[in-house]
Amino acid sequence: MAAISREEVAHLARLSRLAVTEQELDQFAGQLDVILQSVARVGEVAADDIPPTSHSVPLTNVYRDDVPQPSLTQDEALSGAPDAFDGRFRVPRILDEEA
């Protein structure tokens, strides 16, 4: 049985904001299935009592002081923008409650 279906891949692509083509969907579904079957091996390890590692450095409490640092200028901030107007980044209409 496939680990992941074409429909699931389509859903994940939507969630990832990737307008994949039908051809890409076909290709990815098969490839991801192979990859998932291989990586599912992590489940073989009995690790109930093993704490997960999220960071490989044993550091805690790394903070900076609440002291202002220089910001970019507005021009610098907007320098890479595909579209800008009046000091702001311009984007196409946002669907209501898009999230």
Binding site: F85, D86, R88, F89, R90, V91, P92, R93
Partner: peptide, 11 residues
């Protein structure tokens, strides 16, 4: 937001 044709973002 409803009916707007574009939005301008300030961060």
């Amino acid at each position: 937001i409803q009916g707007a044709t574009e939005s301008l973002v300030d961060y």
